[in-house]
Simulated assay, not measured.
Amino acid sequence: MHIGIGIDKNAGRVMESLTSASKSNRITIFSKTGIPGTPYDIVVSDNAEEELVKALYEGRIDAAVRGTLPANAVMKLLKKYGNVKSLKRIALLETQSGTRFLLAPVGVDEGWTREEKVDFVGYAREIASALGMNEKTAILSGGRLGDIGRHPVVDKTIEDAEAVAEGTGSDHMEILIEDAVKDHGIIIAPDGISGNLVFRTLALLGGGRAHGAPVANLSRIFVDTSRASYDYSNAVFLASALADYKQKTF
Rank of each mutant, 00 (worst) to 15 (best):
F120T: 04
A128M: 13
I127Q: 00
L102D: 02
I127L: 03
D109E: 15
T113F: 12
Q96C: 05
G122K: 13
L103V: 15
R125P: 04
G98P: 02
G98S: 08
R114N: 09
L103S: 13
V121S: 15
T99M: 14
F101E: 14
V106L: 02
E110C: 03
V121P: 14
F101Y: 14
L102K: 01
R114H: 05
T95V: 14
F101D: 14
A124H: 00
E94Q: 13
I127G: 12
V108S: 07
V121T: 13
R100Q: 14
E126A: 13
E94C: 11
R114D: 04
F101S: 12
F120S: 05
A124T: 01
Q96I: 12
K117M: 10
T95H: 15
V118Y: 10
L92K: 01
P105K: 00
G107L: 15
E94R: 15
A124I: 11
T113I: 01
F101A: 14
D109I: 10
E126N: 09
V118H: 08
V108A: 08
Y123P: 05
K117H: 08
A128R: 12
G98H: 09
R100T: 11
R125S: 02
W112C: 08
L92N: 00
T95Q: 12
E116W: 00
T113L: 02
A104I: 12
G111L: 08
R100A: 09
K117R: 11
P105I: 10
L102R: 12
Y123Q: 04
A124C: 07
E110T: 03
E110Q: 02
F101H: 10
R114Y: 09
A104S: 14
K117W: 02
E126F: 07
V106H: 01
T95P: 11
G107Q: 15
F101G: 04
E126T: 11
K117Q: 12
G122D: 00
D109G: 03
L93H: 12
F101N: 13
F120E: 08
T113N: 07
L102I: 13
F101Q: 06
K117S: 09
D119C: 08
F120P: 03
T95K: 15
R125G: 04
L102M: 09
E110S: 02
L92R: 14
R125W: 03
P105G: 01
D119T: 07
V106P: 12
G111A: 05
T95N: 13
Q96R: 10
L103W: 06
W112V: 12
E115R: 13
W112P: 07
E110M: 04
G122T: 08
F120I: 07
E126K: 15
V121K: 05
T113D: 05
D109F: 02
L93Y: 07
P105D: 06
I127D: 07
Y123K: 05
R114E: 04
A124D: 01
V118M: 10
R100I: 06
Y123E: 07
R114P: 04
V108E: 08
Q96A: 11
